[in-house]
Computed example of a mutant assay.
Amino acid sequence: MKHLFIACLVTLGLTACSSEEPKDPPKDEQADCSRGQLEADLTFNGPLAGPAVRADGTLAPGRYTVSSTYLRLKPDAEGQARFQELVMPVGQALRSQPGLMALQFASSVYCNTARTFSVWKDDASMYEFVSGPAHLDAMSAVSEVSRGGSIVTHWADDEKGASWQKAAQQLSADEGPFY
């Protein structure tokens, strides 16, 4: 169930197509809890997994579309419950999503954040998921689960540039919108 809980982050993370007005990141973000720095207590919810992941856990050589999310979760019971409601449809969509090559989730208790790292065959595959019903439902609910300052980014790269460290750099450099 925890894996499905975090799977929802991909839904929330690919909100770049959202029609909501962009918001600036909040001023209360702690220096050690920022989108550009992996959290000290970052816990990976399972290994990198997917059809492009080799037996040694590394990504197979190739060109990919890489996406990453930094989600600042709301701490209240309503936000947490709403986040849980979004999990099942997203998890089901991801299990059968064509073009998803690799996926990993991480979270930080100290920062109350969650991150996604997904690797896609190409932009078209990623956007096919983005335009699916589970993702569209989650996009419309992002303000109910994010306390602001959440962001998503994506870039084209090879297997060497598809890393959590590069994701943090890309998230830090991205100018928004913030959710």
Rank of each mutant, 00 (worst) to 15 (best):
M1S: 13
M1N: 10
F5A: 03
I6K: 07
C8S: 15
L9Y: 01
T11Q: 12
G13A: 08
T15W: 14
T15G: 15
C17E: 13
S18A: 15
S19C: 10
E21Y: 09
P22N: 12
D24W: 07
D28C: 03
E29G: 04
D32W: 13
R35V: 12
R35M: 10
Q37I: 10
L38F: 12
L38N: 09
L38M: 13
A40T: 09
T43C: 07
F44Q: 05
N45M: 14
N45C: 12
P47C: 05
L48I: 02
L48E: 10
G50W: 01
P51I: 03
P51M: 05
A52L: 09
A55C: 06
D56W: 02
G57S: 05
L59W: 03
A60N: 02
G62K: 10
G62S: 03
T65P: 07
T65N: 13
T69H: 15
Y70E: 08
Y70H: 11
P75Q: 14
P75N: 14
D76L: 08
E78S: 13
A81W: 04
F83S: 10
E85R: 09
L86P: 00
V87A: 15
M88I: 12
V90T: 01
V90R: 00
G91Y: 00
Q92G: 08
Q92Y: 03
L94G: 04
R95G: 04
Q97Y: 02
Q97W: 00
Q97N: 09
Q97A: 06
L100R: 08
L100D: 05
L103R: 00
Q104A: 09
Q104G: 05
A106F: 02
S108P: 03
V109A: 15
V109L: 12
C111S: 07
N112M: 10
A114M: 14
T116L: 11
F117V: 00
V119K: 04
W120F: 00
W120K: 04
D123Q: 12
D123T: 10
A124D: 13
S125E: 04
F129T: 00
V130P: 05
V130L: 08
S131L: 13
G132C: 07
P133F: 06
A134Q: 08
H135T: 09
H135L: 07
L136D: 06
M139N: 11
A141H: 08
V142H: 12
V142A: 11
S143L: 14
S143W: 09
V145M: 09
S146L: 00
G149Y: 05
G149I: 01
H154L: 11
A156H: 15
E159T: 05
E159Q: 15
G161K: 02
A162L: 07
S163N: 03
S163P: 06
Q165L: 12
K166P: 04
A167N: 04
A167V: 01
A167G: 06
A168H: 14
A168V: 05
Q169S: 14
Q170K: 15
Q170D: 14
Q170T: 06
A173I: 01
D174G: 06
D174F: 13
E175K: 15
G176P: 07
P177R: 15
F178D: 11
